[in-house]
Design a protein around this nucleic acid. Structure first.
Lengths: 310, 310
DNA sequence: CTGTTAGCGCTTTCAA
DNA sequence: TTGAAAGCGCTAACAG
C-alpha cells in the first residue's frame, strides 16, 4: 500500500520512504499494470473514438482538434474505423464498452438502433461529431449540413443561376452529403427551381471521379449550369475538367462545393465552398469530454466561402 | 465457469445450456469486462501506435494501411500523438506499456534512449515505420530516405542542372527530411556540386510557407536554379509562387520534392517528386503485427515521379 | 504516516 | 459436460 501511495502520489508517505520506493521502482524498471489498476478502480482513462475513415482528412482534422484538447489531460484516445458501416460501428462500440471507457465519440447522428440503446442503457458519456441535424444520444457538436446546403443554394440563386446540376459520390454511406443534397434541392424547390441533371457514383470521392462525372454531366452541352458537388475533392476534379476543356467559369459552368479543405489553395481558381469548422468541432468535443460544456447540442456555423467559380 | 465457456465459445457446453446462457446475456445486455478478462489472461489485444501528428496525411495514410490489415483480426488500435517530441513519445510508450499491449508501433528510427531501453527490456513486439536508415529496436518497415534523396539529386544532375537551392521546414523535428537534405547534399558533393542557397523555417510545412520561402530564395535573381523541397506541400507553394511571377519552369526554376501526395493532382503542373509507399508501409506493419513476417527490416523502394517541373 | 483486509470479474487448473 | 478453488496486481476502506 505504501508503494502504491508513492507511485500514485496519493496520501501521506514519509520523504525517506518515498525516495526509496521511487529509486527501487526506477531500478527494476517498474511499469504499472493498468489492467489491474483500472480493474480495481472500476474505471479507465480511455476514450473510444469511432470515425468512418482515416483517409478522409475531414475526420482526421476533427480528431486532431480533439487530440489537442485531450492530450493535456490524463485521458487516452483509442481510435477505431467503421468504414462507413453502421453494423461495424455497433461492434466497435460494443468492443470499446468492454474496456469501460470514460467516454465514447461517434461520427454523425445516424447509428444502428442497437448502438443507441447500448450507449443509453450503459449510461455512457457519448459525443456525436460533425452533424447536429437530429437527436443526439447524449451530446453532440457540429454544424447543420442542411443550413450549409441552403446557404449555398441561396448564394447561387442570388447570383442569377437558373439551371442546376448535382455531382456526388458515395451518397449511400455519406449521410451528411445526403442531407446536403436534399436540403439543396428543397431550397431550389422553394424558389421554383430544380436540379436538372445528376451524376452519381457509389465510389469514394476523389478528384478523378469528380472529373469523370463532370465530363459526363456536361456531355450534351447543357451550359450554362451551376454544379453543386458533394464535396471539395469532387469539385476540384470538376474544375480541372472545365479548365482543360476551355469551359468558361463561372459563366458557362459554376462550381460550388462543401468542406473548405486546405488543398483547394493549390487549385488554379478559388472554388466556392462552405467551410466546415472541423478542427473546432474536435476541440469542442474534447472540452465536452473534460466536462467543460454541458449543453446537449453545440451548433457551429461554418462559413460560406465565395470564390471565383460562382 | 460454464457461462464463461459459452461466451468465449471455448470448451464443451451442452447445447441446451449454451442457448440459455446466450439468451440471458442478451436479455440483461451483458458486456464483457475486458479489464477483468485481460487482467486474468495477462494479455490484451491492444496495439499502441505513436505517430508524430494527425494533421499530416503521410501518417494517416500509413495508419490507414495498417488499420485495413489489422481490422480483420481481433486486435484493437490505440493511437497517440507525439507532436514530434521524443520526450513525449517516451511518456506515451510508458503509458501504453501499462496496458500490456500486444505490440507497439512507432514512427521513425530516432527515439529517446529510454524508449528503446524500455521496449527492449520488456521484450515488446515493436515496429518502427517509414524509415529504414538505422538500427531498429525490433522490426521496421519503410523506405530509405537517403536513397530517395540521392535518386532525386541524380535526376537533377542528369538533367543538366548545376545550381541548387534547398527549401525546408521544421527540420529540427522532422528527422526524415533532415536525412534527405543531408543525402541530397552529399550526392551533389560527390559530383562536385553544392547547395548554393537555403531557405529554412521552423514552422510546420504548408503551401503558404513554401510560397514565402521560395520568394525569399529567389529574390536576388539566382536563376536558373533547381530547388529541392523538404516535401510536397512546400514544393506546391513554390510552384504557385513561380507561376504567379511568370517564372519559367523548369527552365529558370526547377522544382523537386518528396512524398507524392494525392493533392499534387490538383496542381496546374505535375511536380517532380518521389513517391513514398505510405499505404503499403502500413499494410506491412499490420502483417508484422499478425506475425506474418519475420524479417527484421522490410525496405520498400518508392518511386521517382518525373513531372513537368524538372 | 504505515499496514491489513477484502475484493474488483474473469480465466486457468483441477476435480467430479 | 459442469463446477470449485485460486489467483491475476492493484486500490478503497479501515485500523493502528
Amino acid at each position: 500500500m505504501t508503494v502504491s501511495r508513492v507511485l500514485r502520489d496519493k496520501g501521506y508517505v514519509s520523504k525517506n520512504v518515498t525516495e526509496k520506493v521511487l529509486k527501487a521502482a526506477e531500478e527494476i524498471g517498474y511499469v504499472r499494470n493498468n489492467l489491474a489498476g483500472s480493474f480495481a478502480e472500476q474505471s479507465t482513462n480511455l476514450i473510444g473514438v469511432v470515425i468512418p475513415s482515416l483517409s478522409n482528412s475531414v475526420f482526421t482534422e476533427v480528431l486532431s482538434g480533439f487530440e489537442d484538447v485531450i492530450h493535456e489531460s490524463s485521458l487516452q484516445i483509442a481510435i477505431s474505423v467503421s468504414h462507413y458501416d453502421q453494423q461495424r460501428e455497433f461492434n466497435l462500440v460494443k468492443d470499446m464498452l468492454a474496456w469501460r471507457p470514460a467516454g465514447i465519440v461517434l461520427t454523425g447522428m445516424e447509428h444502428d438502433e442497437r448502438t443507441r440503446n447500448l450507449l443509453k442503457q450503459n449510461n455512457v458519456n457519448t459525443i456525436e461529431l460533425i452533424d447536429v441535424d437530429g437527436q443526439p444520444i447524449s451530446k453532440c457538436v457540429g454544424l447543420s449540413h442542411r443550413s450549409a446546403a441552403e446557404a449555398m443554394a441561396s448564394h447561387l440563386i442570388e447570383n442569377g443561376h437558373t439551371r442546376f446540376g448535382y455531382v456526388g459520390s458515395a451518397l449511400q454511406v455519406d449521410e451528411r452529403a445526403k442531407k446536403r443534397k436534399i436540403a439543396f434541392e428543397q431550397k431550389l424547390a422553394d424558389n421554383g427551381l430544380k436540379i436538372e441533371r445528376t451524376a452519381l457514383s457509389p465510389e469514394p470521392s476523389s478528384m478523378l471521379l469528380g472529373r469523370q462525372l463532370t465530363a459526363e454531366i456536361l456531355q450534351d452541352n447543357c451550359q450554362p449550369i451551376a454544379l453543386y458537388y458533394s464535396n471539395d475533392d469532387m469539385a476540384a476534379g470538376g474544375l480541372l475538367h472545365c479548365t482543360s476543356q476551355g469551359i468558361s467559369i463561372p459563366k458557362d459552368v459554376a462550381i460550388a462545393s462543401f468542406n473548405g479543405l486546405e488543398f483547394l489553395d493549390a487549385m488554379p481558381m478559388r472554388i466556392t465552398t462552405f467551410k466546415s469548422p472541423r478542427y473546432e468541432i474536435g476541440q469542442i468535443a474534447g472540452r465536452y469530454m473534460l466536462g467543460e460544456i454541458d449543453d446537449r447540442i453545440t451548433q457551429l456555423s461554418g462559413e460560406l466561402l465565395i470564390g471565383d467559380t460562382t
